[in-house]
Write a protein that binds this DNA or RNA. Structure first.
Lengths: 334, 334
DNA sequence: TTGAAAGCGATACCAA
DNA sequence: TTGGTATCGCTTTCAA
């Protein structure tokens, strides 16, 4: 039976109703730091229930210096790759009573600093970077005491913990799979990386080709979205010796590639086979469904939160295996 | 030139360095409520700069009762339909110095209450519901004083402001477009709505068919995702008189429909034309690209924030027009 | 086991 | 125009 007060009940109201001091209310809410008789405890619990009392998170944050908020910096959310991480992180955070606060950069120079600063100013307890910030100094925003982790990122920031997928093995699995189908001209569609970062997918693709004595193919470097995949595939197919297989650097790219191939009247995987990178839901429903190497979203998210709570440890890096998911676009089921 | 203090600077540090009282610091930061000489003001500004001072959001929230956080309740984020709104809202909120705090329900009964409660407990200033909550009482969480708005929602909650798209006109445009192409058997793939809510898309589809004297077709009601679209189209195409056109209740459904049609060896739009609802980026890169009626995401987001700041007004409802985007799947370009 | 009280950082009333 | 100070709701030390 809860009574609706006009003004939200505070801890003082609870104390008064329970006939104890506010200190005791605090003790029962936090299960410490002092013990409370179970009788007293029950009285407090009853009062809380009757008043519908909920602790004021801001007051608590002010006092303890912890908000229970985890800042996550992402370039966008309309992209299943990031959205998958956001959800995985959110679920993991829920079990710890924390919440994810998003800082979206939109990959616009101006918004980048705003996004990160906003998180820091709001007092997040830690930060997860899922974006390559243009200005390295932004990684230091808020001072050195905030636990931070780089999640599945291409750039490396000295002294910062890292959680990522085994891109190298994943890319290798993808390309080797295409090779195993007998393809000899295998193209790659990706994007140039900002700064002088290297795209491991591209590097590995190149390596595998070399290892098998296959001819090199100029990579099509456009942008990390569907449009980029589309343009890249058009480019690749317009060459004198078009590839018979394409390794797409992301699912979105893969989808764009498929569209281009269809437009050209090519059969997938008959004329051109495709394997993509990421393995989000969208890849499963394209036509044909994309064979892809999948990111271990949940595992990485859980690990990221672990890393953040182990603050103080030496910044290490965790690597998780990717998994090849065979669907229709590679030719296995064709 | 900013000095990095070990401990973050507080307003007291600023006051000391500027040789003024903390009150004045407050005045210049908030531009009021009292005026400050421009000379004093400048001294304070300098001190802030030198110390790298940033106001503590929690302390401020405690004092003012406002956090600058807007709670947004969504079922998921790995779905461009919701992600588009999240981004649109985020951008709009940024211009007001507010942030969007997400409460993801995952459409799981248990998480629903947690998600909403977590937002309220964190002290959000207002709430945007983008999900049909199973338990209507959850809409009242946090008391009656929180401004709330329902964003593009199918259910109606008495006394709550609403911002939505003109689903009816949108659906009509979609179906009429198919009719204008000469189709006589037009199917619908959607999903049963929770509770006894009605799916306007389905109702309008039915209406339009009737108006044109076209034969009714049993709708395929599955679920609002790609898988649902797939199953729905299989179902529709397995009937004795399969449709020659399909109205898909969402982009995801549309994508699933396309996959099913391809699997059956049908040509789109040659054998079956498709028009979908929502118009997210994914619809533009399916094969063939989906003709769709598009949600006015940005406009609705902006309006939602306006409504929230007009607290106290009578709860009205804003409706925005949808736009038909013609691409390849309807037959216009075939 | 319980309570009084200091203090987290910021706001704004009331005086000066 | 500027400053002293009470206060927001909560945590926790110290004393009872």
């Amino acid at each position: 039976m809860s009574v609706k007060p006009a003004r939200p009940a505070t801890r003082t109201d609870v104390a008064r109703l329970a006939g104890v001091s506010t200190t005791v209310v605090s003790y029962v809410i936090n299960d410490g730091p002092r013990r409370v008789t179970s009788r007293t405890r029950q009285r407090v619990l009853d009062a809380i229930e009757r008043l519908g009392y909920r602790p004021n998170a801001n007051a608590r944050a002010l006092k303890t210096g912890e908000t229970g908020l985890i800042g996550m910096v992402v370039p966008e959310v309309v992209n299943a790759y990031f959205a998958e991480f956001i959800q995985a992180l959110d679920r993991a955070a829920q079990t710890m009573g924390s919440s994810i606060l998003l800082g979206i950069t939109y990959e616009e120079a101006g918004r980048e600093e705003r996004a990160v600063r906003s998180l820091v100013d709001r007092g997040v307890d830690s930060l997860i970077y899922q974006v390559d910030l243009a200005d390295q100094r932004l990684y230091q925003l808020g001072g050195g005491d905030l636990p931070r982790v780089l999640l599945d990122r291409s750039d490396v920031v000295p002294g910062m913990a890292t959680v990522g997928a085994d891109t190298e093995a994943g890319a290798r699995a993808a390309v080797e799979h295409l090779v195993s189908h007998g393809h000899e001209r295998i193209g790659y569609v990706g994007s140039p990386m900002a700064g002088r970062k290297v795209d491991l997918r591209r590097v590995v693709w190149d390596e595998v080709l070399r290892e098998h004595g296959l001819p090199g193919v100029p990579p099509a470097l456009t942008s990390w979205n569907r449009e980029g995949g589309y343009r890249g595939a058009r480019e690749l197919m317009a060459s004198d010796e078009p590839p018979t297989a394409i390794f797409a650097g992301s699912d979105l790219i893969g989808v764009g590639v498929l569209r281009a191939l269809h437009e050209l009247g090519m059969d997938v995987p008959g004329d051109v086979a495709v394997v993509s990178f990421d393995g989000t839901a969208e890849s499963a429903y394209s036509w044909p469904p994309l064979t892809a190497v999948r990111q271990p979203f949940e595992e990485m998210a859980r690990r990221a939160l672990e890393v953040l709570s182990e603050r103080g440890e030496a910044p290490g890096s965790s690597v998780f295996p990717m998994q090849l998911i065979v669907r229709g676009s590679c030719g296995c089921q064709g």
